[in-house]
Structure formats: structure tokens, C-alpha cells
């Protein structure tokens, strides 16, 4: 079996330095919608200039290269253990080459491992599939935005959130208000409805891979995504929390089965630097694409 370490290093470089076109186009549009000369518009123009510079120099868009979260879809018979070793080797190389900041610190002592490996670090999700090729997704999830993520258990007496889509809406609005500009707004919200506490958040983060302009196959959720996108922008928090009309670039939701007793709403806040790429390896041919 071919070692994919070097391809993974390329995937990390691309994800860290080359923002996906859907996000960049949305940021550009937003910069035209903010008031001329406002701090909000200034922030977006600086962001766009930075995106261009990072792409030209292969340097990280953001110094917080976050938790590298890998998703592997692989054909039957391939070894998860071998993939895990190659992923760990790839983050070590990427750290040496300054594509990643050494970001793995021991929870209590704060001691930095220096190479982005550690206990359950980086994060890896495996999924065997029917295809005979390999697909690897990578999300670089920064800490500032991760700290704005949260989980609600409905019903919520705090904001009268009922156990239905109306309650989900209130939870998401509450989370967006509480985040203010702290997660490097304008952000993207991935939302998992249902599941248990763990699966709900995994589902929320998976939503961050969806193209910003896509449609949810669930028509009710699609409508709610668009409504929340509009309503959160009406909060006026704006880029960086400077005030303005662009607080989020997108809202993406999915639901999971839950036990009757639980109703979780998990919200993954992603910063504007929504760094995610997908690599496909088929018959030795490697392509890296934006979702």
C-alpha cells in the first residue's frame, strides 16, 4: 500500500494557506455591502488582502492553525492504524515547514508537544465506504472560534426554547449573540440537532464542509438556515464585532436521531478563515479541492 504522508502534507499546506473560493467570494460581496469607510469594511478589506498574500506565499492565513481535524473515507481492507501513523507523520512535517503552528499542549501542564501530536491530537474520523478510492477531508479549526461553540439541552427555561425547530432557532440566536465578534466574525455556524452530546457536535462540525451557497436537502432546515443567516446579520455585530451587517457568512444544519429524553442543539462556530479542503487519491492521481 502506497504511503500517503507527502500528499497529506500538501493537503495541510493547501488548507492552511489557500482559502476556498466560496468563502472568499462571500467575503468580497460582504465588503461591498458594508458602509464605505466603516471599520467593518476596513476589516473585510484587510481580510481579503491577507487571503491573497497567504495564497501567494504559501503562508498560513491565520497563525492559529487550530486543531487539525481529518476525515478519511477508505475502501475495505485498508489499515486505519497505518493511516493514523501517516497523518501523525504529516502534521510533524507540516509543523517543521511552518504550515502549522505547534498547537498540541498537554491539558493540565500546558506543555507543548512541539509537533502537533498528542493524546487524540490531531483529530481523525474514519469511515469505510464502497468506493475503491481514498478521500481525505481536513478542517483546521482555530481555538478562538472553537471557544464560541456551545451546546444547548432543550427545553431551555433561559430563553423559552421549546423542543422543536422554533426552540432550535432561539438557541442559535442566543449563541450568535453571545459569541459577539469573539470567534473572528463573520463566522459560519455548523449546527447539529439531536444525537447525544458527542455525536451532535461531530455532526455540527461536519456541516462546515458544506459549500456556502448549497441547499439543505431537508426543505424545512433549508428555510431555517436562510432565516437564521438573515436574522443573525440583523444583530448588527459585524466583522470582528466592530458593528455592521455581516456577522455570519452561512448557517448549516443537520439532524440526527436522539433518545426521547434528550434534545441537544450543538453549535460549532467557525471563523471567517473557514479552512477546509478535500483530497482525493484515485489510481495514484491526487487532487485537492475546495468543497
Amino acid at each position: 500500500m502506497r504511503d500517503i504522508t507527502q500528499h497529506l502534507v500538501e493537503l495541510i499546506k493547501s488548507t492552511s494557506s489557500d482559502l476556498s473560493p466560496d468563502v472568499e467570494v462571500t467575503l468580497k460581496r460582504a465588503s461591498k455591502e458594508e458602509k464605505d469607510g466603516s471599520a467593518a469594511q476596513g476589516a473585510l478589506l484587510t481580510i481579503l488582502e491577507n487571503v491573497k498574500m497567504s495564497r501567494e506565499t504559501d503562508r498560513p492565513i491565520c497563525q492559529d492553525t487550530g486543531t487539525p481535524i481529518f476525515y478519511l473515507w477508505y475502501p475495505e481492507g485498508r489499515s486505519q492504524r497505518a493511516f493514523r501513523e501517516q497523518i501523525q507523520a504529516s502534521v510533524r512535517i507540516a509543523t517543521e515547514r511552518s504550515y502549522l503552528r505547534p498547537n498540541a499542549v498537554e491539558a493540565l501542564s500546558g506543555k507543548n508537544s512541539g509537533d502537533n501530536t498528542g493524546v487524540d491530537f490531531p483529530t481523525i474520523h474514519f469511515e469505510e465506504w464502497d468506493n475503491d478510492h481514498l478521500k481525505v477531508g481536513l478542517l483546521l479549526k482555530g481555538g478562538g472560534s472553537e471557544n464560541c461553540g456551545c451546546q444547548y439541552s432543550l427545553p431551555s427555561p433561559e430563553f423559552a426554547g421549546s423542543r422543536d425547530l422554533a426552540g432550535v432557532r432561539k438557541a442559535v440566536l442566543d449563541a450568535a449573540y453571545k459569541a459577539q465578534g469573539l470567534g473572528c466574525a463573520p463566522g459560519i455556524l455548523g449546527i447539529g440537532i439531536g444525537g447525544d452530546r458527542a455525536t451532535s457536535m461531530v455532526k455540527a462540525k461536519e456541516q462546515l464542509f458544506r459549500p456556502l451557497g448549497d441547499q439543505n436537502k431537508d426543505r424545512e432546515l433549508d428555510k431555517m438556515e436562510k432565516q437564521l443567516h438573515r436574522e443573525i446579520n440583523e444583530l448588527g455585530i459585524g466583522p470582528m464585532g466592530f458593528g455592521g451587517s455581516t456577522t455570519v457568512l452561512g448557517v448549516k444544519m443537520a439532524q440526527l436521531h436522539r433518545v426521547p429524553a434528550s434534545f441537544f442543539v450543538s453549535i460549532a462556530y467557525m471563523c471567517w478563515a473557514d479552512r477546509r479542503k478535500i483530497m482525493t487519491i484515485r489510481d495514484g492521481n491526487v487532487t485537492i479541492e475546495s468543497p
Binding site: T46, I47, E49, I61, C62, M240
Partner: peptide, 11 residues
């Protein structure tokens, strides 16, 4: 307030 995420530019 610096611009969050504008790391190459500030670098």
C-alpha cells in the same frame, strides 16, 4: 483591535 485571522499580513 487588530484584524483577527489576518496573520500573513500582520506577519
Amino acid at each position: 483591535h487588530a484584524i483577527g485571522g489576518a496573520a500573513t499580513l500582520i506577519g
